[in-house]
Simulated scan of single mutants.
Amino acid sequence: MNNYEKYRQVQKEAAATGLLLLALIVFWICAGFGLADVRMEVFHLPLWVWTATIGVWLFAICGVKLLMTAVFRDMSLEDEEAGHDDK
C-alpha cells in the first residue's frame, strides 16, 4: 500500500468516525429529550435516563464494532516507498 492509498484510507476512517459521532449526538438528543415526556419508569428512574445513558453507550459500542469490521483496515505505518529506494 503506497502513501496515497494510506492517505485515502485514513480520510475514509476519519469521515466514518465523524459520521458515527454525529449519529451518536442525534441519538442522544432523541433518546434524552425526545423521551422526556414519557411517563414510564424503570427502577424508579424515568425512561429517558436509561435511553440517554445506557442506550447511547450500547449504540456507541455497536457503532465502533461496525466501523472496525467494515471501514477500518490494518495497515503498516512504515514508509514502504522509501524502503524500496534503498535496495
Results as ranks from 00 to 15, higher is better:
Gly55Asn: 03
Met75Lys: 11
Lys65Leu: 12
Gly55Arg: 01
Asp74Ser: 14
His84Trp: 07
Glu78Val: 05
Glu80Phe: 00
Val56His: 02
Val71Phe: 06
Ala70Met: 10
Asp85Val: 12
Trp57His: 07
Lys65Met: 06
Gly63Met: 01
Leu77Gln: 05
Leu66Val: 10
Asp79Ala: 03
Phe72Cys: 13
Asp86Met: 14
Asp74Pro: 01
Asp79Phe: 03
Phe59Ser: 02
Glu78Phe: 07
Phe59Pro: 02
Gly83His: 05
Met75Ser: 11
Leu66Tyr: 14
Ala70Trp: 10
Gly55Cys: 04
Arg73Met: 11
Asp86Trp: 14
Leu58Tyr: 05
Ala60Leu: 09
Leu77Thr: 08
Arg73Asp: 13
Gly83Gln: 15
Trp57Ile: 10
Leu58Ser: 10
Ala82Arg: 09
Ala82Tyr: 07
Val56Arg: 06
Val71Arg: 04
Val64Thr: 10
Ala82Lys: 11
Leu77Pro: 02
Lys65Gln: 07
Cys62Thr: 01
Gly83Leu: 15
Lys65Tyr: 09
Phe72Pro: 00
Glu81Tyr: 01
Ser76Leu: 09
Asp86Glu: 15
Ile61Leu: 13
Glu81Met: 08
Met75Trp: 06
Glu78Asp: 09
Glu78Ser: 04
Gly55Ala: 03
Val56Ser: 12
Ile61Cys: 09
Val64Asp: 09
Met68Thr: 12
Gly55Met: 03
Phe72Asn: 07
Lys65Val: 11
Ser76Pro: 00
Leu66Phe: 13
Asp79Asn: 12
Phe59Lys: 03
Cys62Met: 13
Leu66Ile: 07
Val71Thr: 09
Gly83Val: 07
Arg73Ala: 10
Ile54Asn: 04
Ile54His: 10
Val64Cys: 08
Phe59Gln: 04
His84Tyr: 08
Met75Ile: 09
Met75Asn: 05
Phe59Gly: 02
Leu66Arg: 08
Leu77Ile: 13
Lys65Cys: 08
Met75Pro: 00
Gly63Tyr: 01
Phe72Val: 14
Glu80Pro: 00
Ala60Glu: 10
Ser76Lys: 05
Glu80Ile: 10
Thr69His: 12
Val71His: 05
Asp79His: 06
Phe72Asp: 03
Thr69Asp: 13
Ile54Cys: 09
